[in-house]
Design a protein around this nucleic acid. Structure first.
Lengths: 162, 162
DNA sequence: CTTAGTGCAAAACATTTGCATCGGT
DNA sequence: ACCGATGCAAATGTTTTGCACTAAG
């Protein structure tokens, strides 16, 4: 979990972003970026705060919110609002765009990627004469009792998480 | 805005729901339902609270939240989480399912309905062996400067609001 | 040196909860 | 009469803000 290729790449992008926007390159910011990229899956601010407490740099919640905003702005993290309580964040290496299925019972989050969402966005850009910046697609579902062996259709790619 | 057909229908459904679930049919609950259905477009709890203050029945915020939960449960309203601050609600006559485009600049909300989202849901049901309960698709975009006349593609149906 | 960034604690905000009272059933 | 629903205010949990201090440029 120290410094893989993706994390290094993210650090470069972050550094460039900070320079270009006249923000200071503080050690806290990079410590947060590293911690965010060390994380697999979703996390909330409180969790990040706690785990940063044991890290090289201890940062305040205010700094976390501040830095997460910067990371959102340069697309190095994504923010999600699954339920009602508190936003969830996750790292975002721009490959591997995906959306989420939230299971009602367990709160478990599945990921999937369906090309049709891109088609919808393209259609909307024409229809409304807009430029789509990003989107959020959350499917709320529950596990089915029967039919244990599901087969995998062709268009959609799925992956699991936590 | 008094009592159109849709509102009457909603009241019947609400009444049936309350009976079947052993909830009391209080005047507050029906006053809220009527006010919700008098509303065109999205509203937040605070706005509803204020407008209810001038209404036949003045209700507390607690009752609003409580009643909105009931209305959500019987699918007479939908809840949305567009930005960070506070949920937005809207009435939901089960025809006319739609999703939202949020314009970054103005916060204006456009509505659209694309059949491909249903296809995606069907695919996911097979793929993960789940039963989709509902979904939330928000497209964040900004207006385009150029290309004033956009033409309307075939698959997507659009509507405007606010 | 200048001033953005930080930590801390207080404030703001939306939502939930506890409790006494009210009113459907 | 019973007990669920209400209003109010206090509590909760998350995010923001004010301010004095630190450190990046």
């Amino acid at each position: 979990m120290s410094k893989d290729h993706i994390t290094e790449q993210a650090e470069s992008l972050f550094e460039a972003y900070l320079e270009q926007n006249g923000h200071r390159k503080t050690p806290e910011r990079f410590a947060i970026l590293r911690q965010v990229y060390a994380y697999d899956g979703h996390f909330d601010v409180e969790t990040l705060y706690e785990v940063m407490g044991n890290s090289e740099y201890r940062v305040s919640r205010a700094t976390l919110y501040n830095t997460l905003d910067l990371l959102l702005d340069c697309n190095l993290v994504r923010r999600h609002q699954f339920g009602d309580h508190g936003a969830q964040y996750e790292k975002c290496h721009r490959i591997k765009q995906h959306d989420h299925v939230i299971l009602a019972d367990s709160g478990e989050v599945l990921e999937f990627c369906d090309p049709r969402i891109q088609q919808i966005k393209a259609t909307l850009e024409e229809l409304f004469d807009i430029e789509v910046l990003h989107h959020s697609l959350n499917i709320y579902a529950r596990k089915r009792a029967s039919n244990p062996q599901a087969r995998v259709p062709e268009t959609t790619h799925a992956s699991h998480e936590s």
